[in-house]
Amino acid sequence: MNILETEGLYHDFTGLLVLFDVNLEVKEGERHAIIGPNGAGKTTLFNVITGTYSPSRGRVTFKGKEVTGWKPHKLTRVGMGRSFQITSTFSRLTTFQNIRMGILSKRRIRFNLFRKVDKMQNITEETDDVLKRINLDGERNLPASMLSYGKHRSLEISMALATDPDLVMLDEPTAGMSRDETHNAVELIRRLTEGKTMVIIEHDMDVVFSLADRITVLHLGRIVASGPPGEIRENQTVKDAYLGEVEV
């Protein structure tokens, strides 16, 4: 069953067409990578799916329900999570508080005005659990802005997962990471997305081919190929459009 589908998705920025008839299908439980050269429209596709913009035309369906044009908070509440290419944490809050924000959302605690959040034992415990799992318990009380780059990126990814989404969309999670950091990040992603559906934008082909069950190639706003990794590796159009530039 498809957890996410887009049908005939178009998007333009004041006349400049960035997405062109995009039909994406993501099966439940699948690890789906979206690749493509810079400017292919990958992040725009993410933004349209996750509610940053409404598409100019077309439909987005999530878990069998049409969600075209829904705002991000609504999509998050029905089980979509997202991380950002440019790290977007709460910079002055501690690592703990950053993750706790996600836990509060997961527990649907929003307008609670009658208890101190520090006194909510179950929230604190669950947050600390998450911190341990992502190896950030040592940085628990450090402001996010003081974290090393690699750890800050881990926090970014983990925040998307803290709300316990069914579908998680990761926008270049390993951007700017060293080889070691990338390796750790891939392990982290593999561990945290166990049993979830994941869509990932990635430039690093090693990461793509080690993580993904299915790959969609976007070029100039269109899908030029979609299939299992082996098939994509052999696909001539893909080689011409994209992979030819990189060593596979």
Partner: peptide, 24 residues
């Protein structure tokens, strides 16, 4: 000090992320 108070601080630091975490 309430959970809502912590959301408000989140708005200061990163309003967009608040939305993406499921808070209106």
């Amino acid at each position: 000090k309430t959970p809502f108070g912590s959301l408000v601080v989140g708005v200061r630091d990163n309003a967009m992320r608040i939305d993406y975490l499921g808070f209106k």
